[in-house]
Design a protein around this nucleic acid. Structure first.
Lengths: 156, 156
DNA sequence: ATTGAAATATGTTCGTA
DNA sequence: TACGAACATATTTCAAT
């Protein structure tokens, strides 16, 4: 179990290390060490501290979904007719693998989701046969992403 | 330069390897090899092939923004008064580090962005002093994420 | 596609400054 | 914090199947 501080102080060397690894999680620590000009052991120690602080949530291989035929991303605003049904609706959304994000939001909708699908037909199937059939879902509004121009993490 | 095929076939072993690494990019290949029951060299070769296919977009350390004090995520729908200004507006959005995603979308808005900020005051600052001041931006609609329930990649 | 083995490089720990 | 040294593992390549 990680201890997560409210806020953590990181210096320039920490930032250099993290920026390298945010860009390529498999970059050898020794390579970063040589570039920065400190020892591998020092980086190791800093990374352990950063990990213990909870700042490092993990590491991931990033898959290019287009290569698997997933070329259409869309955002769907969902109106739920009873707020009490929300947890159950989210549970059902988790069962839909194409749902990548799900947020309770302020504003018109109860929930906003991001989905990734193969094409418009697949999108229609997800809307009509998966999302709309969830109990409590009264209406949806769909926004297809024609083109994603930015995709990144918070900058250090 | 990677060659990106339109669609790629992957078998169960590829999926096991990728699922492991999507979960932890630094997991040693040999560890995965022992778990699956094939040699490290075989995994190495498969990973090379997967990389060449373009399926592997890269790897990342994932930062927990809450530890840096970023606790408010929001989606902002942006109305642009002239479609011709879109590329310039996107260019300016890229200059705002808090903007994590930016999509051209169908529907009411020209652009939908996802931003991460420290608190509501920071959000207001970004809206009023950064986003709204971009030339061509006529109006925005903000949806604060009260709680993110799902955050994942496409499943293999 | 897969293997084992060999060579090279990296990860990890620890005593010390 | 940082270092170097020592040890344990992992990566990478390759000839053989």
């Amino acid at each position: 179990m990680k201890i997560i501080n409210e806020t953590v102080e990181i210096d320039g060397i920490d930032k250099e290390i993290l920026r390298s690894l945010m860009n390529d999680a498999r970059k050898p620590v020794l390579e970063i060490a040589r570039k920065i000009g400190i020892s591998g052991a020092a980086i190791h120690q800093r990374l352990r501290k950063l990990d213990e602080s909870g700042l490092i949530a993990g590491s991931k291989f990033v898959i290019n979904p287009k290569v698997l035929g997933y070329s259409t991303m869309a955002f769907i605003g969902i109106y739920l007719d009873k707020a009490m049904r929300n947890p159950e609706a989210v549970k059902q959304l988790k069962e839909i693998p194409e749902v990548l994000e799900c947020h309770y939001t302020t504003g018109n909708w109860s929930i906003l989701i991001k989905i990734l699908c193969k094409d418009n037909e697949h999108l229609m199937y997800l809307l009509n046969d998966k999302v709309q059939t969830i109990e409590g879902v009264s209406r949806t509004e769909t926004f297809i992403s024609l083109n994603q121009q930015i995709d990144r993490q918070i900058q250090l």
